[in-house]
Design a binder for these strands. Sequence first.
DNA 1: CTTTAGCAGTCTTCTGTATTAAGTGCTAAC
DNA 2: GTTAGCACTTAATACAGAAGACTGCTAAAG
Lengths: 346, 346
Amino acid sequence: MLTEREKMILKIIVNDYTKSGVPVGSKALSSQLPIHVSSATVRNEMAFLEEIGLITKNHSSSGRVPSIEGYRYYVDNLLNPNPIDNSDMMIIQNSLSGRFRQIDEIVQQSADILSNLTNYTALTLKPEQETTPILGSFRLVPLGNHKVMAILITDNDEVVNQVFHIDGDLGGDKLDAVVRMINDKLAGKPLDEVITKLKTEIVPEILKYVKNPDSLVQTLDDVLMQASTNQFYIGGELNLLSFTDNNDISYLKPIYSLLNDTDDAAKFIKSSDNSISVQIGPELSNDLLKDYSIITGSYDVGPYGKGVIAVLGPTRMPYSRVIGIVDGFRNELSKKLRNYYDKYNQ
Amino acid sequence: MLTEREKMILKIIVNDYTKSGVPVGSKALSSQLPIHVSSATVRNEMAFLEEIGLITKNHSSSGRVPSIEGYRYYVDNLLNPNPIDNSDMMIIQNSLSGRFRQIDEIVQQSADILSNLTNYTALTLKPEQETTPILGSFRLVPLGNHKVMAILITDNDEVVNQVFHIDGDLGGDKLDAVVRMINDKLAGKPLDEVITKLKTEIVPEILKYVKNPDSLVQTLDDVLMQASTNQFYIGGELNLLSFTDNNDISYLKPIYSLLNDTDDAAKFIKSSDNSISVQIGPELSNDLLKDYSIITGSYDVGPYGKGVIAVLGPTRMPYSRVIGIVDGFRNELSKKLRNYYDKYNQ
DNA sequence: CTTTAGCAGTCTTCTGTATTAAGTGCTAAC
DNA sequence: GTTAGCACTTAATACAGAAGACTGCTAAAG
């Protein structure tokens, strides 16, 4: 347990350092403390904080910077989240107030807004129910010229489509028969079950109608996969450049490919609980991200599931400001999306 | 008119400099010349080449680098395009040999392959006819739950779709009536004409069937716009970082937004003629690109129009190698796409 | 027992200087 | 026309010294 004064000192160190990026020394610190103590006293306290591992120094005569444990202590015990700026809130509300045709658009745009507000990189994940989505219905629309569009609709408002070509002639009535068969067998079933049944039950049936079902089956598989993997958006990727110290391309490339791999990236921002969580550097257990922190906030669309927004920034980021923004944003987004769902999905 | 020896010297300067990035001096140059002359002689020649503006130096005692005019002379008169590597050709053929469902996929993937081969940034444009595309047909597919998908098919194999919501109830028969009306009036007409007629002729008609046609009309407009603007793909955006000297984010950001603006970027790679063209630095007439060159090559899909592939690299890029790659690539792509069209669009 | 002033010592950063290496231009001889 | 030789220019590198920012420790004061 730290004394009040030690807490104050740690707090100022974190605040100063995240603002300036310069290690903070005893003199500057003592002048900022609300109680009057000399720099020598502060030095004693700092020596103690270093001993217990909350701060470190770069070399023997430099100021101190927070250690990972120091950040953790700060985030858990010291930080009081800045309430979000009025102007920032206006920006959020304005950008979310436009017309949207699909959830994807809102969630995608959210990534851009969030990255603009923070000047970091933002990641957003669409709302998702606890259970696997359920196949609503399935369509095949002939477009003429051997082209067919496959459309898949899930119970959570997701529409996935893909155009493919079919060899030989296939009349609209045959397509209708295939569609009826598939819907009879699979509508109302969870997608993972649909995926397995596609191979075992559907393919043999399709053979009755279509001679060469390869492209149809492949397309079915594709749209199913697309509907069942969780969609993931990134905003402000370029900002990584400005907040990474090591401005070296060979260093950044693997980070970019990490971010663009949906599965990998999604696992960093799956927030366990209901609100805001902060993961700092090594806590992300990926060596590439050891100098970065991720702040995740989940947003809640009631019966339609939960989504996640997240900000990726340097470990030395102004946590209280960013947490305030993420919190404000997730609340607005929840509101907006509930509205959207209520309007169209009664 | 330059003498043979002057040409050789200029050629070696460009070759050396594009390879190493280091200004080239008289001594290194003389040792590379096929005829034996002393460095002093070379110095005399270089002084002349500088006088007529083909090379410059950074400071009074540095080696020489090609000027923009020097590059231009080299590209126009000196360069003999490397035939493409066998291994590179294999890579191209392999990546283009997979199954593709839509043109977009091939063209998009081409940008990635091309950027990988060159380590620069690649831009690709879909094939386009000389005349505006023609509206093939138009569909509205009810998806249930107030959702409707609009699908637009053009005569050049383009399929554009968008989901929108419709207030109130709108039975399938009403939708069918709207679709029939639109197709009757507009099918077979060029898209630009369709766009203007949408507002004047179609909207009043739609009002007969739908009370609140806003979202429908907006969607029609969107898909039309999407189908009539030329699609544009970028590969290897990140490579910009590694070949830009000034690794400064504030310098790169405007370039990225320039590249991501379809209209702006497309105008740089509209190639006038039928083959390969090279635009060097200031010739691009955009100050942001003054240190970059663009090599464009058009590919030809016969009656289905022409597309463009392009490579964006630094002015000091190995032109002969890159030109070889672009040329090899456009030939393969032409073949592949003709194949594709022949197969499905008889 | 805590706080403080003072001071020696450490390390970074900045500045100026010297040195080296690469390359040019010019001149005079071949 | 070509070449050798030399003086001159500039960038890059290395080094030394000074300044500045801190720390840790000690000893005195509260």
